[in-house]
Each structure stands twice: as C-alpha cells, then as structure tokens.
C-alpha cells in the first residue's frame, strides 16, 4: 500500500516536471521511453470536400517520439 502510494506520488511529480517543461514548449528525453516535445503547425489553406477553401489556424501540438 505504502509502495503504491509512493509510486503514485512519484508519477505525479514526473508528470508535473514533464508537463511543466512542455508548457514552456520545451523538450524532454527519457531513456527507454522516448522524447516529448512541442511542434508548431503553421496556418495553412485547405480545400474541403465541398469546395470551400479555409485557412486552418496554427497550433502548437505535443509530439512523442518513442525510443527504438
């Protein structure tokens, strides 16, 4: 039980550190798991199926590259 609680606390802290870094648009590498980063998608024009041309807004998205 105590071990489980400790693991939960550790996970919470790991996620907090990781998320805090991602919010600053940082990059974090964790051995055996992969790399977490934020990539920026530029706004771009896109033609819908009905012929409409729309400008898609830009976005900052979280990307994860697993370690091989």
């Amino acid at each position: 039980m105590v071990k489980h609680m400790t693991e939960k606390k550790n996970e919470k802290e790991i996620v907090a550190v990781l998320a805090g870094n991602l919010k600053k648009h940082g990059k974090a590498q964790i051995n055996r798991l992969g790399t977490f980063s934020v990539s920026h998608q530029k706004q771009k024009q896109h033609q819908e199926k009905d012929g409409r041309i729309v400008m898609k807004p830009p976005a900052d998205i979280i990307t994860f590259t697993p370690e091989k």
Binding site: A19, K23, E48, V54, K56, I62
Partner: peptide, 25 residues
C-alpha cells in the same frame, strides 16, 4: 496527449476556428 495539457500547450491558438476564404463551389 491529455486534453487539458494539449490546450495549455496550445493556449496561444486555442479557441480559434478555420477562416473560410472562399465559399463552396
């Protein structure tokens, strides 16, 4: 990604919707 985290990361552009440039043909 968790939705709330994704939104926080994308806070700069969150809530934006596509702009229609030309109407449907």
């Amino acid at each position: 990604p968790d939705q709330s985290l994704a939104m926080e990361v994308n806070h700069k552009y969150a809530g934006m919707s596509p702009i229609e440039i030309s109407p449907p043909s």
